[in-house]
Computed example of a mutant assay.
Amino acid sequence: MPSTALTYTDPLPRLLTLPGVYRPQADTRMLLGALAREPLRPGAEVVEIGTGTGALALRAAARGADVTAVDVAWPAVLAARLNGWRQSLRLRVLHGDFAARTRGRRFDLVLANPPYVPCPDPSVPTSGSRRAWDAGRDGRAVIDRICAAAPGLLRPGGVLLMVHSGMCGAQETLALLARHGLTAQVTERAWVPWGPVLRSRRTWLQEQGLAEDGAEQEELVVVRARSA
């Protein structure tokens, strides 16, 4: 699948979003586009890591997949369940760490829009809205865990679709997935305006070499990895 520019232009789904739950944004749109292009047979087993409002999980369920969605935040779990009920779509939404809640299971498709924003605090937040985006000083605290877990989550021929910021290092993600035995590539790139979180950290990001002077846009990438 060749790299493309941002091509998915359908409106983002209008979903109930509770306080503290990540609202669907440009990264959600990119992953929805990647999901739309992915073959998905009825009854395929899908898991979404960090479901938020459930936007991606619900789109997969609408295509007939058997979907499990996981999130560490109770408000997100409640929002995804409510959105599934409102759309009359069957969705299994679980609270907790994705590794613990998926232990012993394998999937045809793994979807992930993990926290990926670099932050001065090296620890990952355990409460509050920041846990939806902050991911350590290099933004890879959750990305690296997903890369390491992917071989055990995927059935033979299964696919991981993950979106994250170019600040985190797309080549590092590809190399890590390859070391874990997956075939991976960047299938989509897009530049989007900085949001308030990045703007508030401009000086720190520049000091870390993660942003250039005067930067106003962030590159997002979709990574597709396939199990042998």
Rank of each mutant, 00 (worst) to 15 (best):
G54D: 04
R37D: 11
G214C: 02
P151G: 00
G33R: 01
D134V: 00
A55F: 10
P118A: 03
H95M: 10
G20N: 06
Q217W: 10
L154S: 06
Q206Y: 01
G181F: 09
A100R: 15
R140G: 04
R23L: 10
C119H: 15
A149F: 07
V186N: 04
G157K: 10
I143K: 03
G214H: 10
E212C: 09
L58G: 04
D97G: 12
A69E: 12
L35A: 05
A135H: 01
R131V: 14
L109T: 02
T28V: 02
E38S: 11
E45G: 13
V117F: 13
L31V: 00
W194L: 14
V186M: 10
A65H: 04
S165E: 02
A112F: 13
A34P: 05
I146Y: 08
C147N: 11
R199V: 08
P39L: 08
V67Y: 10
A190E: 11
L109I: 14
A34I: 03
A57N: 01
V77I: 12
S165D: 00
G169L: 08
R130H: 13
R23A: 13
A175W: 02
N83H: 01
N83F: 08
W191V: 04
P156E: 07
A215F: 05
V70L: 12
G209Q: 07
R201M: 14
T68Y: 06
R37V: 00
P156W: 10
A61D: 03
E219I: 14
L160Y: 03
R103H: 14
D66V: 12
R101T: 15
A36K: 13
Y8N: 11
V21Q: 11
G64F: 01
D27A: 00
G54R: 06
V124K: 01
D108Q: 13
D108I: 08
L94S: 08
M30K: 02
G128C: 07
T9D: 15
C119R: 13
L176S: 13
L15Q: 06
G50W: 02
G157Q: 06
G50F: 04
A148Q: 08
V186W: 02
W74V: 14
S123F: 03
R29K: 10
A100E: 15
A148R: 10
L35C: 09
A135C: 04
T51C: 15
L18N: 05
A62H: 00
L160R: 06
A150F: 01
A225M: 13
M167I: 09
P11F: 07
P11T: 05
E219F: 03
